[in-house]
Simulated scan of single mutants.
Amino acid sequence: MRFQSLNVLICSLIILTLSIELCAEEKAVRKRSDPSKINSPWDDLLAGINSPEEWIEHKKEIRKQYLKLIRDEFKPKKPALELQFHDTVIVDGVYRRQLISYQVEKNERAHAFLGVPLSLRGPAPAIVALHGTYAYGKKRAAGLIDNPDKAYLDHLCRRGYVVIAPDHFVAGHRIPQEGPYDTTAFYKKHPQWTAVGKFTYEHSIAIDVLESLKEVNPDKIGALGHSLGGHGTMFLAAYDERVQAAAGNCSASFFRQNSKVEAWSRDRWYVYFKHIRPGLLEGELPPIDFHEIMALIAPRAFLDLSGLNDGDPLTQRQRVLMLLKVMDVYELEKAPQNFAFYVHGKGHSVAHESRELMYGWMDTHLKPRSVTKTTLVIP
């Protein structure tokens, strides 16, 4: 009797387990659903904006905040370029690379490499190629040293672009006495300005250089870069409307949703925004953030590339939400085809597919339609 009771009990447990599993399977059936609105911390970009006209007015206010953030009012008077050509090298019979210099402040000259394809038959599209944090910046951009993945000038000249690759103002020919990327001397000279204002202003002057060249089509100017050059591209495109196409790769994290936001205003080495440090230490963020700065570029073309595993993964996932809101602006400006983003898992890199996307983006927005148009096979 005891064995029979035990068998009955075991059978009952088996039946109960199967019943539970069947119920669980029934509950796991997915039902049809309509898409729900995605709410995020970036929704303030278009809060209260109900028409393109309202957005255009709001955009003017955002630009004021942007110029205030970089303290543009403290930039010096723009000097004459006094463009000089120092040496010339012909690379593989494909393009001419020249070391050039030009004035960016009174008695202060910037150095850059200028690449001009030899096959040009008229004015060509041109690109400002911005290097990342690297002591010998423009040499890497020209493919002369370090990582050839970042040799933008070489790559783009071979694709038919005129390219200027300037040194960051604390790198290359202008490394300060304190060392590469140390902004101590800069803030002694310009205590009210910002490093971001300085490099953005200088990159805008690099566009002046391009416009002075007969080989350049002034209506087809782009900008791209990685890391420091990536967010430098965003700052430049938002600042200078002559940039018709921009691509920023692995740019820095924004102000909100960033546990390391104080890095934007360090008390040593490279200080982006010295004046916002007191507020950051009190937990107060600037009144403008990356989604608003990116929105200033609309309706001109902008591509953002980033790695979900580049730094804090939670912050990088917020980037995706932020970019969705920027797309809303491009749709409001009736130019959704001019905005795109690519998110990958290769960390802080500029891998093959990222380069191809950036260069293809430039081809699409700066070259004639015939260059990217596909055709059928002729029988």
Rank of each mutant, 00 (worst) to 15 (best):
Y201I: 05
I15H: 00
N249I: 14
L99Y: 02
I49S: 04
C157W: 01
K77Q: 06
N7Y: 05
H275D: 12
H111Q: 14
A301R: 06
V371M: 09
S101Q: 03
P148A: 07
G248F: 08
K334M: 06
A110R: 08
S12R: 04
M362L: 15
P35W: 12
V104S: 02
R319L: 11
K150N: 13
G160E: 04
K75T: 01
A151Q: 00
K27D: 03
C11S: 11
C157D: 01
D146H: 08
E73V: 09
I10A: 12
P117I: 02
F254H: 08
P148Q: 05
V243W: 05
R159D: 03
L144V: 09
F341M: 09
K373C: 00
P313N: 08
W42R: 04
F254G: 01
R256T: 10
E241N: 13
I90T: 15
L213G: 04
E282N: 14
T184G: 05
W361G: 02
K68N: 15
S354Y: 00
V116S: 01
G160I: 07
K75A: 14
E54Y: 04
I10D: 02
Q103F: 04
Y136V: 04
S212R: 08
P218L: 08
L303T: 02
L9H: 07
K77V: 11
A141M: 13
H131C: 09
L332P: 05
E292W: 04
L281M: 13
S5V: 14
K214P: 08
F339C: 06
Y102W: 00
G222F: 04
K150S: 07
G225C: 09
I378S: 09
L324D: 12
S306R: 03
T17G: 09
H226D: 00
L308F: 09
S370P: 03
P286D: 08
D44S: 15
I127M: 08
C11G: 10
L332N: 02
K214E: 15
R355H: 07
V162C: 07
H291E: 13
L118T: 13
R158W: 03
P79T: 11
